[in-house]
Design a protein around this nucleic acid. Structure first.
Length: 813
DNA sequence: CATCAGAATGTTTTT
DNA sequence: CATTCTGATG
C-alpha cells in the first residue's frame, strides 16, 4: 500500500508547515517538552506511558481532556508517530472539535494533518467509503437518519402484512439498534430476542438489511457493524489499518458499546498501544448500549495493561467532592477512586425541601438573583456561571415559566436540534432528491408535502409501479403521473409537475458554475414548500420560515449541495445561541463534561430521581446508573451546590406527592447544610400537618465527627416534630429496610431468589403501583396486571409477594 | 383524501 | 397538562 505512505507524508508535511516551530524535527524531539511541567505526577504518567495498553481512570474534574490532548501532542512531539498514524476517537463532534483545538494550541499549529481524529461514526464512514464493496455497497452510500429508518421499516412491515399496532416500527428499530450496538448481524441474533412479530425478528432484520443494501444506504448502527464485519472477514484490510494505527486513544471509554469495543480491540491487536480514558462512575448511557463492563474488564482484555488513576480534582470544593463521593460509594460495581483536592473548604452543599415544584422554581429564581447581586459575602456572579440540572426535560418548564415571569434570561440546552426540525428535514429531502434522483426515501417524504392530493393509496400505487418496473420511486412517479393510474386527475397533474421540477433542478445543479444557494432557495419556492408555511396560520409558522432562511444561508459555506448533505448527516450540531449572560437549564445527561460555579439540582424525589422507570426496567443496574447520574450532577459544581426536592409536584396535570430521593439519604451529613424555605409557616417539606416541623426546624446538620451519617436520619433523630405523613411513611420504610442498610443490598438478595419465588398468578405488591397479579415471567422481569395501574413490566426485585393481611410493605398513611 | 375530535401516552440522547 | 396519534366523519 504505497499510496498510503504518500498520503501520510503529504499530510505530515502539511501539518509541519502549519506548525510555527521552524527548527528541524530532530532538535525539537530532543528539546524538553515544556507542556509536561504543568501536569501533576499522575497526569504526567498518563502522558508518558506511551507503550502498551493503558487505562486512565479519570475522575470528574481531574484534567482528563488535558492529559489526553497532552498525550497526543507528546506522541507527535517525540516523533513516535506521525499524526496520521494516531487514531483518536471521541463520542461527539463537539469533543472531537475541542480536542483538535487544544492540540492545535499545544503544538502551535493547525491539526489538519490529523486525519484520524474524530467520532467513532465519522471515522467509520471514512473507512467504509474506502471498502464499501466489501459490505456490498457503493462508496456513495447514503446515511439514513432516524426518520428515514422508521419509514423504511414501516414499508417493510406493511409489505410483510404485520399489524403495525401490535408490532410498532419504533420497537423494531430499537431492537435493530440494540443488535447493531452489539455488532450482531441478522445471523447472530440470539433466538430469545426474536420475539418480534411472532418470532420473525431475525428474519425481518435480514429483510431490513437487504433493503438497505438495495437502497445503497446505511443507518447509524451499520457504520460500526459493517466496519467490524469487514475487519473480521478481510484480514488483509484489517492488517492494513492495524499497521497504520501505531497509537490509539479513546475518550469517554465508559460509554463504548460492544461494537465499538470490538472495533477497538481489532485495531489495537497489532501495536497494542491503546490508551483508553474514562470514568466508570460517569457511565450514564447504558440505556443506549454503553457497556460499563468494557471499562471494568479492561485489565483482563488487554493483558499487562497499566492503570493510572487521576484523582486530584481541580474543579470542586472539598464539601462538594465529599457529597459526591458519599453518594457514589453506595454503588457496588465500580473500580473505585478517591477524589481529593487542596482547594479551600468553601461552603457546604445546601439542601432544601419545598412544598411544591412551583415554589422550588420560585426559590431557585431568587437564589440566582442573589448570586447575581453577590449577597452573603460572595462575589457577584454572572448568569453564565449558573446552571440548573434536571433529570427529565419536562422539569424544565417550571423554570422557564418562572424565569419568563421574572425576566431572568435563560438558555435551554439540548432542546430539539436545528436539523431535526420538521421543516429542515423536509427541505433537505427536497435537496436530496434534486441531488440524487434515486433517493426514494427522501422523495417519499416530500411527495405530498405540500399537499398535492396524493394520499396513502396513490403512494402505494407508485411504490407498486416502482417494484413492477424495477425503477426508482421518482421514475415510477413519472410513469404514474403520465398514465394517471391509481390517483385522481388532480394528483396526477401535481405529481407530473413535481417530477418535471426535479428534472430541471437536477440539471441546474449539475451545470458548471451552478449557484447552489440560489437554486436551493428556488427549490423551496417553486415546490410550493415556502408558500405552505406562509399560508399556515399556526403560531410557529413564522419561526419555521425563519429556520428555512437560515438553512439556505448555511449553504453558503459549502461548495455544493452534496457536500452540505454529507456534512449534515454526521455533524448534527446546533451551536446557534444568541450572546448574552444566561442561566443554563439542561438535563443531567446534557451536563456531562461541563462545569459551573453555581449548580442547582432540583427534583431529588424518589420516582423522579432516581427515576421509577429505570428502577422498574433495569432493577439494581438501573438504580446504579441513576446514582452515577447523581454523581455526574454533583461533580458539575465548582463552588456552590444546592440540592432541592418538593413534596408535591404537578406532573401530567395531576398532583403527585413524593418522598425525598434516596440519594439524599446517602449524602454525608457533615458536608450538608439544611436550609429553611422562606415564607412558610413551620417549614417546608411535610408541613401539611399542623405543627409539623418539616425541614425548617434546625439550622446546620450533624455534629461533625460522625462520618457518613445520613442527613435525613439525623434530621429525624433530632427533631420530635416530624409527625407529618410523609415523614412517618419514610420512617416506616426505613425501618423495613433496616437502619443504615443500603437499600440495594437488600434488592440484590431478593434478586437471587426472585425468579424462583414467583409464578404466574401470584399476587404481588409494588411500592408505586400497588397490588396486582403476575401474568407473565421473563427471567427476572415480570409482567403484572396491577389493579389500579394496569399492565406493567417490572423487575422481580421490586415487588413482594402480597400477604393476606397488610404486611410490612403496607405502610400506614 | 382531508379534517377534526377524541384517545392514548408520556425519561435520559448521540451518531 | 400537552402533545401526538388514531379513527370516524365530511
Amino acid at each position: 500500500m504505497n499510496g498510503m505512505d504518500i498520503d501520510e507524508a503529504a499530510a505530515f508535511e502539511q501539518w509541519e508547515s502549519a506548525s510555527q516551530d521552524r527548527r528541524p524535527l530532530s532538535e525539537r524531539a530532543a528539546a524538553p517538552a515544556p507542556y509536561l511541567d504543568s501536569l501533576n505526577p499522575d497526569q504526567r504518567k498518563a502522558v508518558e506511558a506511551l507503550e502498551g495498553p493503558v487505562l486512565v481512570l479519570a475522575g470528574a474534574g481531574t484534567g482528563k481532556t488535558r492529559a489526553l490532548t497532552t498525550r497526543l501532542a507528546h506522541l507527535i512531539h517525540t516523533r513516535r508517530a506521525w499524526p496520521s498514524q494516531i487514531l483518536a476517537v471521541t463520542f461527539t463532534n463537539k469533543a472531537a472539535r475541542e480536542m483538535k483545538e487544544r492540540i492545535g494550541d499545544l503544538v502551535g499549529g493547525t491539526v489538519e494533518g490529523m486525519p484520524w481524529l474524530g467520532t467513532f461514526h465519522s471515522i467509520c464512514v471514512k473507512i467504509l467509503r474506502r471498502h464499501a464493496e466489501l459490505a456490498e455497497l457503493k462508496s456513495t452510500f447514503t446515511i439514513l437518519d432516524t426518520d428515514d429508518q422508521i419509514r423504511l421499516i414501516k414499508q417493510l412491515l406493511a409489505a410483510e402484512n404485520v399489524d403495525e399496532k401490535r408490532w410498532p416500527a419504533r420497537l423494531f428499530a430499537s431492537m435493530v439498534d440494540r443488535w447493531k450496538n452489539r455488532a450482531q448481524g441478522p445471523g447472530q441474533v440470539p433466538p430469545d430476542e426474536c420475539g418480534f412479530a411472532n418470532g420473525r425478528g431475525a428474519e425481518f432484520y435480514q429483510l431490513y438489511q437487504d433493503r438497505l443494501r438495495v437502497l445503497n444506504a446505511v443507518d447509524f448502527g451499520d457504520l460500526l457493524l459493517h466496519v467490524v464485519q469487514i475487519f473480521q472477514k478481510n484480514p488483509d484490510v484489517l492488517a492494513d489499518y492495524q499497521n497504520r494505527f501505531k497509537y490509539i486513544l479513546v475518550d469517554e471509554y465508559q460509554d463504548t458499546n460492544v461494537a465499538q469495543y470490538l472495533w477497538l480491540r481489532l485495531l489495537a491487536a497489532e501495536h497494542r498501544n491503546i490508551c483508553c480514558v474514562g470514568d466508570d462512575d460517569q457511565s450514564i448511557y447504558g440505556w443506549r448500549g454503553a457497556e460499563v463492563g468494557n471499562i471494568l474488564r479492561f485489565e483482563r482484555d488487554f493483558e499487562g495493561a497499566e492503570v493510572i488513576r487521576l484523582e486530584q480534582n481541580y474543579r470542586s470544593t472539598p464539601h462538594i467532592l465529599a457529597a459526591a463521593s458519599g453518594v457514589i460509594a453506595a454503588n457496588k460495581d465500580r473500580l473505585g477512586k478517591t477524589l481529593w483536592t487542596d482547594a479551600n473548604e468553601g461552603e457546604k452543599v445546601r439542601l432544601i425541601g419545598h412544598w411544591d415544584g412551583d415554589e422550588e422554581a420560585r426559590w431557585i429564581g431568587e437564589e440566582i438573583e442573589a448570586y447575581q447581586r453577590g449577597t452573603r459575602g460572595h462575589a457577584a456572579r454572572g448568569l453564565d456561571d449558573m446552571a440548573i440540572l434536571v433529570r427529565a426535560s419536562f422539569q424544565m418548564r417550571a423554570f422557564e415559566d418562572r424565569f419568563l415571569t421574572i425576566g431572568l434570561p435563560y438558555r435551554v440546552i439540548g432542546g430539539p436540534r436545528f436539523y431535526e426540525r420538521m421543516e429542515i428535514r423536509d427541505a433537505m429531502a427536497y435537496f436530496r432528491v434534486a441531488v440524487s434522483p434515486d433517493d426514494g426515501l427522501a422523495f417519499e417524504r416530500i411527495v405530498n408535502t405540500p399537499k398535492r392530493g396524493l394520499g396513502d393509496k396513490a403512494q402505494q400505487s407508485i411504490n407498486w409501479v416502482a417494484r413492477q418496473h424495477g425503477v426508482t420511486l421518482l421514475e415510477a412517479a413519472r410513469i404514474s403521473a403520465e398514465s394517471g393510474e391509481g390517483m385522481t386527475k388532480k394528483a396526477a397533474k401535481g405529481l407530473g409537475e413535481l417530477v418535471a421540477q426535479f428534472d430541471r433542478w437536477h440539471v441546474e445543479l449539475a451545470a458548471p458554475g451552478a449557484n447552489h444557494v440560489e437554486i436551493a432557495g428556488r427549490i423551496l419556492d417553486e415546490s410550493g414548500y415556502t408558500a405552505m408555511w406562509q399560508v399556515d396560520k399556526s403560531p410557529d409558522a413564522p419561526g419555521r420560515l425563519e429556520n428555512l432562511k437560515e438553512l439556505v444561508q448555511a449553504l453558503e459555506e459549502f461548495e455544493n449541495l452534496q457536500g452540505f448533505l454529507e456534512h449534515v448527516s454526521l455533524v448534527m450540531d446546533n451551536d446557534s445561541d444568541e450572546p448574552g449572560e444566561k442561566v443554563s437549564i439542561m438535563t443531567l445527561h446534557g451536563a456531562k463534561g461541563l462545569e459551573f460555579p453555581c449548580v442547582f439540582l432540583p427534583g431529588w424525589e424518589d420516582g423522579l430521581f432516581p427515576s421509577q422507570r429505570s428502577m422498574d426496567e433495569n432493577g439494581v443496574k438501573g438504580l446504579e446508573e441513576e446514582r452515577r447520574l447523581a454523581y455526574v450532577g454533583l461533580t458539575r459544581a465548582q463552588d456552590h451546590l444546592t440540592i432541592s426536592f418538593a413534596a408535591n409536584r404537578h406532573i401530567y396535570g395531576r398532583w403527585q406527592s413524593s418522598l425525598p430521593s434516596r440519594f439524599i439519604d446517602e449524602l454525608p451529613g457533615n458536608h450538608v447544610e439544611v436550609l429553611t424555605p422562606p415564607g412558610l409557616y413551620g417549614g417546608g417539606f411535610g408541613a401539611s400537618a399542623p405543627g409539623a416541623g418539616g425541614y425548617g426546624a434546625a439550622a446546620t446538620a450533624s455534629p461533625s465527627g460522625e462520618p457518613e451519617g445520613s442527613v435525613l436520619e439525623e434530621r429525624a433523630a433530632q427533631a420530635s416534630t416530624y409527625n407529618s405523613p410523609g415523614w412517618r411513611r419514610m420512617a416506616a420504610r426505613r425501618g423495613e429496610h433496616g437502619l443504615g442498610q443500603p437499600r440495594e443490598a437488600r434488592n440484590l438478595v431478593v434478586d437471587a431468589q426472585a425468579a424462583s419465588r414467583f409464578e404466574v398468578g401470584t399476587r404481588v405488591f409494588h411500592q408505586k403501583f400497588g397490588y396486582g397479579n403476575i401474568t407473565e415471567i421473563e427471567g427476572d422481569k415480570l409482567t403484572v396486571a396491577f389493579e389500579k395501574a394496569g399492565d406493567k413490566k417490572v423487575v422481580a426485585s421490586f415487588v413482594t409477594e402480597a400477604r393476606a393481611t397488610g404486611g410490612a410493605d403496607d405502610v400506614p398513611f
